[in-house]
Structures are given as C-alpha cells and as structure tokens.
Computed example of a mutant assay.
Amino acid sequence: MRRLAIAASAAVLLLGSLAACGDSDEKSGGDAGGKKKVSLTLNWVPYGEHAPFYYGIKKGFYEAEGIELTVKPGGGSGKTLQAVAQDQTDFGWSDTPPLLKAVATGMKVKSVGVFLQKGPTSIEFLADKNITKLSDLKGKTVGGTPGDALYATFPALLKANGMAPTDVKVVNVDAAGKIAALAEGKVDAIMGFFHDQAPTIEAKTGKKTSYLLYADWGMNMLGTGLVANEATLKKDPEMVKAFIRATQKSWAEAAKDIPGATDAMAELADNEPAKEVLVKQLTLAVPLLKLDAGAPGVNDTQAWTETIDLMSKYGDLKDAGSPEKYWDNTFTSKG
C-alpha cells in the first residue's frame, strides 16, 4: 500500500486509515502556514472519478486559493451526507438523488454544484450477453441494492420503455457485492455507475463490459457533486467560493490531462484501483461533465427540475419543492 507522498509546499492529503466521517478537528477553521484547513469526504473509496481532487492538490490549485485540503474516503453518498449534516466534514462528494432524500428528511445540507450532469446510473453486463437495448433484458436477472436511486427508479425505466416490472427478475444484492455477483454469473446484469464499475469488472473478469445508461433511455438524473452544510455556507462563504474555484479548475484541467490526473491519484491515494482502471474510469467520467455547456459544476434549473420530478414521481420524494430547496447556485463561477 502506498504511503502518502506530497511536497511540503503542497496541500496535505489524508486517506486510507481515516474513517469516512472523520473527526471534527479535521474540519476547516485551523490555520496551516496561512492556509485554511478544509476537509472533503468522498462518496466512496477512491476511484477514477476522484482523480481531479488529487490533481488539484498536486498542481497547487487548492494551495493557490489558501486551502490545505484533506480528502477522506466515503462509504456511500448517504453516509457522506450524514457526515456533512453532522458537521464532521466541510464538504461532501455526493450523488444527487440521495441528496434530495436527505434534504426531504430535514438534513441541513445543500448542493453547491453538480459536476456529473449526465447521470452515470446504468445497467451493466458482460458484452457476451448480447444486450443492446432495454427490451433485451426481458427474462434476465438484474442485481440491485434496495434503497438506492437506481433501484427505486428501475421500474420507471422499464415502464418508460414499454416494459413491465415482471419482464425482469430483480435480485437484491448488497452494494459491495454487485460486481462479484455479475462476475460469478449469479445475475445477468447489475444496476450501477458505469464509469466506476465497468472498468473494474473488465479488470476482474478479463471480459468486455457493456452498459445501458438510464440517461439514454429517458431517465436522466443529475449525478455527483459538492454538498455542504447550510451553516458552512452562511458562516464562511468566501472559503466556500475559494474551494469551489479550486475544484472547478481541478476538474477542467484534469479533463485535459487524464494521464497526469491519474498519475497524481496513483501517487497520493491509498487503496485506489490499478492505473489502467483509473484511466478508464476518469475517461468515461469526463463527458458527463458536459463541458461544452459551461464550466464544471455550473448547473441549470431545468436539469434540477427534471431530477426532482423523477424522484418525486418514482423515488418516493415527498413535498419535493423547487430546486432552490436543494441547491445554492450562488457559489459556482461560470468560468
């Protein structure tokens, strides 16, 4: 396992041995040689999507904004949101549907910008299954995890494409066991994030993996982005703006230098996938940014409204409300 290596002038990065929620003394507010200590908890253990954060540290983008960044692994978006709500981390990297549910339950958290604007939710399968369209799933078994947004909206995905829930057998699988279930042939396909899991499946099985994106079949929901506690947004808006500026630059530059970004992650992160997997994961993630429409993390109201409507109709989101209930758009620079 690699030990963290970073020059004395760069931002400090802590990963691996840190618990997902961390300790309160790792939050912002401390002073490190004139830089503010800021913590970010990921949605999961490090994979290629997270490489831009390491790239930003390596290149000094956070340091240039006066930030010493600590990055911590997560255990799912739900746990990351809890850490943000409980003031155990300054920022979280969370999927948007769980954020909507968290706010609906009273958590005082808000998105300050979704980066993966085309949702990565998908149905994944080995290419030799010859599945090319949703109707090819008829008679197949699909592994999913109860409680997540993919599972909740899968029946709607079928209905939107002229299929009935009975056309497919859904098998309940723990989130951590989905890849193994597919690799071992216990299911024909799984619900998951294609840019993360497909390269991992290929590395483990040596077989080509294919996928059908919900977004390409009428069910686009915003993906992962930055969330913060409402108190943080009010208490330290300048720090929030500085952190987001550095993160936007990190993503914009990483998108142009995928080898450099994954090299930075391979150097700085413990427990990351093999380098070739990292490259594939980040390569698949970059188009989801929709950079042709603007700077990373800059959203529009329509995309939020569509996601809220889908979660309200199919994901048991109560008293949905408007995008402003979940998203504060005053912190992101439009570039």
Rank of each mutant, 00 (worst) to 15 (best):
residue 195 H to F: 05
residue 143 G to K: 01
residue 180 A to H: 12
residue 293 A to V: 06
residue 201 I to G: 07
residue 28 S to Y: 04
residue 139 G to S: 05
residue 322 S to K: 15
residue 298 V to L: 03
residue 295 A to G: 01
residue 78 G to R: 12
residue 289 L to T: 03
residue 248 Q to K: 02
residue 254 A to N: 05
residue 226 L to H: 01
residue 260 G to W: 06
residue 242 A to W: 04
residue 218 G to W: 08
residue 243 F to N: 00
residue 304 W to C: 05
residue 257 D to M: 10
residue 3 R to Y: 09
residue 135 S to Y: 11
residue 166 T to S: 15
residue 321 G to P: 11
residue 252 A to P: 04
residue 72 K to E: 10
residue 185 G to A: 07
residue 236 D to E: 14
residue 288 L to C: 06
residue 200 T to R: 15
residue 275 K to I: 02
residue 156 A to M: 02
residue 320 A to E: 07
residue 302 Q to D: 13
residue 253 E to T: 14
residue 220 N to D: 08
residue 111 S to M: 02
residue 328 D to K: 01
residue 309 D to C: 06
residue 232 T to C: 01
residue 119 G to F: 04
residue 175 A to H: 12
residue 227 V to A: 13
residue 24 S to M: 11
residue 121 T to N: 15
residue 310 L to V: 12
residue 64 A to L: 06
residue 94 S to I: 09
residue 200 T to C: 08
residue 27 K to V: 13
residue 132 T to N: 14
residue 325 K to L: 08
residue 96 T to R: 04
residue 91 F to D: 02
residue 51 A to E: 08
residue 104 A to I: 05
residue 277 V to W: 11
residue 327 W to R: 01
residue 291 L to N: 06
residue 205 T to N: 01
residue 126 L to M: 11
residue 215 A to M: 10
residue 50 H to L: 02
residue 334 K to E: 07
residue 22 G to Q: 06
residue 158 L to P: 05
residue 244 I to N: 00
residue 272 E to Q: 13
residue 297 G to D: 01
residue 299 N to G: 05
